[in-house]
Each structure stands twice: as structure tokens, then as C-alpha cells.
């Protein structure tokens, strides 16, 4: 008999939220909502019998183009990517150049956000800070989605002991609170690149995606077209890659998009706690941490990077929300 807790699974993705303290919460929202998405293949085609039926993706794109939330968040993200690639386009200064005479000075001509504790230009640091945040977010999401969906899909497809072992292993990772784990794992790292942080996020993040991928593969596996393909002699890898994956990928994409925002927030939190990115890397989290002692004298040092960080996270979470709405057959 299958696990008695199975009937609970769809309403019990909240286990996923726990490690994060706050930020992992994003996955939970995505997970709860992504449950609705499972089995997108079963959705009705609109457009009547004569119209050429649109695929899930063109349907979603059709919806997205008309969604103001999507447009706003996409514009913010495009702008972010632009300054990540080419920060010199909107600032000519050096984010590391310090002029102690200007320490904590307020806004002035050419320095719209003022100066930080070390006399560095806050505006320039905010612009360059996007680089670390977005690259950590993107790399961690790509890693988590690849590792999580591969392991989850294999568990869902093959079932049996592989599934049981993988579920227990992911339970172990769920049991470790994310911020705590980050403090323990990263406090001994002295490398100042983004890779330890990315690696840590992938290590603790994959079970969330694996759980979603497993669920949607299990749903897709039972569809008639999979049985038909198997009857025609298709092998496991062909079934998984050509028939199941395209029909199970939507929930993973939704979770991934929302997770991107939460990883950016998590990077900032870890950097704030002093174990994430380290100077001389320019990071919003480090700047906020430095500014937090001086909030009474010079709140501008904290508010600008905090605002940029919040706007970035908001943009990715709104994008994820919009993508979920577009891919969610229930709302049609």
C-alpha cells in the first residue's frame, strides 16, 4: 500500500517552507499553487472545435502579454539585466573608490544617493550591487532547477526504493533551517566569489524542486499518450524526455521563477549576517549590513540598497505570480 500520507501531500507542501525562516516561504506559495498545475495536459482547449488549438505555452504567452503585473515586472527585470551587463551606462564612477572626507554625506550634485560610511558613492554601489544579486539568483535557480527536476523526475518515474531513498534524503535537507545551515556551512568559507553561496543554495534548495517535479511526473506518467508511446516500444529515456518532461515542466518553471526572487533575498540575508558574499564584492546585503549600525545618523545609506533589493525581489516574485496565473488551467 502506498504511503498513507499521500492524500496529504497536495495540501502539505508547507514542510518546504520551514527551513527558510522567511524566504523559503516563496517556494511554499509556489508549491501550493503549483499543485494545481499538475497534469497540464488534461486541460481543455479553448477556441472552439474549428480554431487551431493553442499549446499551453502560446496560451500562457497570450495571457501574459495582457497582464500589467507581468509587463511591469518584466520591464524591471530587463532594466536590471541591462545594468548587470553594462553598469557603466548609467554611472561613470567606481563603486570601490572611497573618499573618507565624504563619509555619510547626504545627496549632492552627481551623487544623488549620497555617500556611505567609507565615503563611497551609494548610487554607484547600488547599481553595481545588482550584479552580485542577479548572478547569485540566476546561478542558484539554474542549479536548483536542474538538480531538483532531474532527481525528482527520476524518483517520480521509477518509484520504488530510489523514490523512498530520495524522499528521505530530501526530508533531511528540509529539516535544516536555511539561515542556520547557511551560517554553519558558509562561516568557514573564505572564498569571496559567489560560488560557495550558490553551491549552498543548490545543496539546500533542490529538494523543493524535486518534490514538485516528482509530483508532476507521477501525474504525467499515467497519461494515455505515455502508455501509447510505451506500447510502441519507446524506452525510458525517450518516454521521460520526449513525452513526460514537456508535460510536467510547467510547475517547475513556476517554482523556479518565484525561487529566483527568494534566492536573491536569501543572498542578501546571508551577506547581512556576514557569511554570504564578502567585500570587495559589491552586494546590497553587505551594504545594508554596514549601514545598519548608522541608521540613526544616515538612513539613506540603508534605504537605497534596501529599496533596490526589495524592488528586485518584488519583480521576480510578481513575474512568478504572473507566470503561474498564465499556466494555471483552473483560472480559465
Amino acid at each position: 500500500m502506498p504511503d498513507a500520507q499521500d492524500p496529504l501531500e497536495p495540501v502539505d507542501p508547507h514542510q518546504a517552507v520551514a527551513p527558510a525562516g522567511g524566504y523559503g516561504g516563496g517556494f511554499d506559495l509556489a508549491a501550493a499553487d503549483a499543485q494545481i498545475l499538475e497534469g497540464p495536459a488534461g486541460r481543455a482547449q479553448d477556441g472552439g472545435p474549428l480554431a487551431k488549438p493553442r499549446s499551453l505555452w502560446s496560451d500562457a504567452w497570450h495571457d501574459l502579454r495582457r497582464n500589467p503585473i507581468f509587463i511591469v515586472s518584466a520591464l524591471i527585470i530587463l532594466f536590471l539585466l541591462f545594468i548587470v551587463i553594462w553598469p557603466q551606462a548609467i554611472t561613470t564612477q567606481d563603486p570601490l573608490k572611497a573618499n573618507l572626507a565624504m563619509s555619510q554625506a547626504g545627496p549632492s550634485a552627481g551623487h544623488p544617493f549620497g555617500f556611505d560610511n567609507q565615503g563611497r558613492d551609494v548610487y554607484t554601489r547600488v547599481v553595481y550591487g545588482a550584479r552580485a544579486s542577479v548572478s547569485v539568483g540566476l546561478c542558484a535557480t539554474i542549479g536548483v532547477v536542474l538538480a531538483g527536476s532531474a532527481l525528482g523526475a527520476l524518483a517520480g518515474y521509477f518509484g520504488g526504493w530510489w523514490d523512498a531513498v530520495l524522499s528521505r534524503i530530501s526530508d533531511i535537507f528540509f529539516g535544516i533551517p536555511v539561515i542556520l545551515g547557511g551560517l554553519v556551512f558558509l562561516s568557514v568559507v573564505t572564498n569571496s566569489t559567489i560560488w560557495p553561496v550558490v553551491g549552498f543554495m543548490v545543496l539546500l534548495g533542490w529538494p523543493q524542486v524535486a518534490r514538485i517535479a516528482r509530483g508532476s511526473v507521477i501525474t504525467a506518467r499515467q497519461n494515455d499518450y505515455v502508455l501509447a508511446a510505451r506500447a510502441l516500444g519507446a524506452g525510458d529515456s525517450r518516454l521521460l524526455l520526449r513525452h513526460i518532461a514537456p508535460n510536467a515542466v510547467a510547475p517547475v518553471i513556476v517554482v523556479g521563477t518565484i525561487a529566483l526572487g527568494t534566492y536573491i533575498a536569501l543572498e542578501a540575508t546571508l551577506s547581512y549576517l556576514g557569511v554570504g558574499l564578502r567585500p570587495p564584492t559589491v552586494s546590497w546585503g553587505i551594504d545594508i549590513s554596514d549601514a545598519s549600525n548608522q541608521i540613526r545618523n544616515a538612513p539613506h545609506m540603508l534605504l537605497w540598497p534596501a529599496g533596490a533589493l526589495s524592488l528586485t525581489v518584488l519583480a521576480f516574485i510578481m513575474l512568478g505570480d504572473a507566470v503561474r496565473d498564465a499556466l494555471d488551467p483552473k483560472l480559465r
Binding site: G21, G261, A265, I295, R296, S310, V313
Partner: peptide, 22 residues
Amino acid sequence: TLVVISVPTFVTGYVLQYIFGV
């Protein structure tokens, strides 16, 4: 709610501490 979810805890913490406490 989207905005609240997006603003990291340590930012809301400092801002609220500054407004209500200081």
C-alpha cells in the same frame, strides 16, 4: 502581501525599529 513577501526581514526590521523605536 507581494510587497511584504519581497522586502527581506532584516530590512523591515531596521525600518520599523527606526520608525517606531527611534
